[in-house]
């Protein structure tokens, strides 16, 4: 009896010592969890995350090489078994792309003609920043990537990241040499999108599955979404550029539509970060650039014939000549 009692007492003593640590650290982590639930974007946590990806980026870069090599070997083995079907799929894709090439060529001609007429102003040129994927969170609900380009390369928060197929996600954390991309299928991802061909605007909401859904915000009467329609970024809110390929509608429900993403997360090793800045609205006098352009057009239409006639008839036009004289006086 005595022995049994002592044994249990000793065991209890040992356990309570190890459990005190667990209890204390559990309390700390629960408090952290509650505070991050209360304010997910607390600046202390944000800074800690940015410091963490900065510190970890050399280690992740070191590991990314061998991991990529192993994946290539494994991928090559599985590719051998699917050469025929892949070949067939590529042939079909090639045929479709040839048609697009024709269309692109003709469109290029149209654009060149419009540029000649000066009726076309090109959108502000975006300068993409290329970056390698060095880290990835492939958790059940959290989907993000860490890339090896940061503030030093000109990356800043909110920029869109695309791979060769379509949009991957947007930048959420930036450190000097690394950045985190929140993928479109993360549960916290919200991207304004537009369904091409049916004038439907909505928010693309991550659902932690491979297919995010569109929560429709604007639906005119009679507009319908159909599977297969292309989904692009709408540019609403001015953070992302308009027209980035997101994917295609996969299925339509009463309230929402699921989207099959164009980007292939399992294959994207390199992404392009699009340096986009919403054109300054305040620079134009009347607020809306459209109105200013329209006003300029009207005034040009009124004055153009007169000046053209002047230019044709009298090279040294009297109305132009007195002006410098007045100034001189």
């Amino acid at each position: 009896m005595e022995l049994l009692g002592r044994e249990t007492r000793e065991r209890f003593g040992l356990r309570s010592r190890s459990q005190a640590g667990i209890l204390i650290f559990s309390l700390v982590s629960t408090m952290m969890l509650l505070s991050s639930l209360y304010a997910a974007e607390a600046s202390v946590f944000k800074k800690a995350r940015e410091a963490a990806i900065e510190t970890a980026s050399p280690i992740l870069k070191f590991f990314a090489g061998p991991i990529g090599w192993i994946e290539d070997r494994l991928g090559a083995i599985s590719d051998y078994f699917r050469v025929l079907e892949q070949n067939e799929a590529l042939r079909e894709e090639n045929a479709a792309l040839r048609q697009w090439e024709e269309e692109a060529r003709s469109l290029r001609g149209v654009i060149a003609a419009l540029e000649e007429l000066e009726a076309y102003t090109p959108p502000p040129a975006a300068k993409p920043i290329n970056a390698f994927v060095i880290g990835e969170a492939n958790d059940a609900y959290v989907h993000s990537m860490i890339v090896n380009a940061g503030a030093n390369e000109g990356v800043s928060r909110g920029f869109a990241a695309v791979d060769e197929r379509g949009m991957v996600g947007r930048i959420v954390d930036v450190s000097p040499n690394a950045a985190r991309i929140l993928l479109l299928n993360d549960v916290q991802s919200r991207i304004p999108v537009f369904v091409e061909g049916s004038f439907v605007e909505g928010l693309l909401v991550g659902r932690s599955t491979s297919q995010p859904t569109i929560a429709i915000t604007k639906l005119a009467n009679g507009d319908k979404i159909q599977p297969g329609q292309r989904v692009i970024t709408s540019g609403a809110g001015g953070v992302l550029p308009r027209g980035l390929t997101v994917g295609a509608v996969a299925a339509v429900d009463k309230k929402e539509a699921t989207v099959e993403l164009a980007a292939d997360y399992a294959r994207s090793r390199m992404v392009r970060i699009i340096n986009y800045k919403f054109p300054d609205v305040e620079a134009t006098p009347l607020g809306a650039p459209g109105a200013a352009a329209a006003a300029a057009e009207i005034s040009a239409a009124e004055t153009a014939p007169a000046t053209a006639a002047d230019a044709a008839n009298l090279p040294a036009a009297p109305p132009a000549a007195p002006a410098p004289v007045d100034e001189g006086d």
């Binding site: 505070s35 991050s36 946590f45 995350r49 990806i53 970890a56 969170a137 958790d139």
Partner: peptide, 13 residues
Amino acid sequence: DLLSGGPIGLWPT
């Protein structure tokens, strides 16, 4: 948590 970008405190718990 810091590397995955999820809510901080989840995985320690």
